[in-house]
């Protein structure tokens, strides 16, 4: 018997109000521990899929279950890292990291341990008293990630978290992300525009097409974890990157 899926989309259709169909017949099961990247043309509904999982917006038809429950009921299981760092500028790093727990009602003394652990994971120990304006873009993103990690979520949603960063910083943070994943085993949904990033991080890549948004093709990535700089230099990695790029081009030209 196989493990029950942690996220199950069955024929999900989504439209905002009476606007056009944004997602049309999306079907997939995510197993616990999956790292799924969503890639596809702008406006194909990648962020919408994350918003549905997070219960920020309801599905129009079809069914979506998280751990066998509705997204609303499962809200406590997940954390979301937005494209922008979305830090509160008036709080220092330490307090920013604690905000997610604070909103969930975790009392102050209990928050401290999780804050320290999360900051250690993103390698920002010692920067607790800095304010967001004193941090670089990459550091802000790491604070945002740490804030999500304090919840030790079962499901981690990341919407182009490293999109605004330079190549070097991005690769570095990718490796850090996989390191942390060794310690907190989330099921991950990761939206990106970078094929290389998707191949490096995921075990499954959903290549999406637009108008209406559909999962055009799923690509399996079988390289074992932990993945390192050596993975990036390997031949199979490059081959897969070109294959996915080709798929993406074919989707974008239609």
């Amino acid at each position: 018997m196989s493990v029950p899926p942690i996220v199950a989309f069955t024929n999900v259709v989504k439209r905002y109000g009476d606007g056009p169909v944004v997602l049309d017949g999306v079907c997939f099961d995510a197993a616990p521990g999956d790292f799924i990247s969503l890639i596809g043309p702008s406006g194909c509904g990648k962020s919408t899929i994350l918003r549905l999982i997070a219960g920020l917006s309801p599905v129009t038809s079809g069914s979506l279950t998280i751990d066998g429950r509705t997204p609303e009921a499962a809200a406590a299981e997940l954390a979301f890292v937005f494209q922008e760092p979305t830090l509160l500028p008036w709080l220092n790093v330490g307090h920013n990291v604690e905000v997610a727990q604070q909103l969930r009602g975790v009392p102050a003394p209990a928050r401290a341990a999780a804050r320290r652990r999360a900051l250690e994971l993103v390698r920002l120990t010692g920067r607790e008293s800095a304010f967001p304006r004193q941090l670089s873009g990459g550091q802000k993103m790491r604070v945002s990630l740490a804030r999500a990690l304090t919840l030790e979520p079962k499901i981690l949603l990341l919407d182009e978290p490293f999109g605004a960063l330079d190549e070097m910083t991005r690769e570095h943070l990718n490796e850090e992300l996989l390191d942390i994943r060794q310690q907190q085993a989330w099921t991950t949904f990761f939206v990106t525009h970078s094929v290389a990033e998707a191949v490096f991080l995921s075990n499954r890549i959903f290549v999406m097409s637009a108008n209406p948004g559909r999962i055009h093709r799923e690509v399996q990535v079988d390289f074992p974890y932990p993945r390192t700089e050596a993975t990036r230099r390997s031949r199979p990695y490059h081959d897969l990157v070109s294959e996915v790029s080709r798929l993406l081009r074919s989707v974008e030209s239609t």
């Binding site: 997070a54 920020l56 809200a75 979301f80 937005f82 922008e84 979305t86 509160l88 604070q102 969930r104």
Partner: peptide, 17 residues
């Protein structure tokens, strides 16, 4: 900032928070 409001909604902040 709308993004911050969204963050608070995401973590189910109540009106008071």
């Amino acid at each position: 900032d709308r993004n911050l409001v969204e963050l608070f909604r995401m973590y189910r902040a109540n009106r008071w928070q």
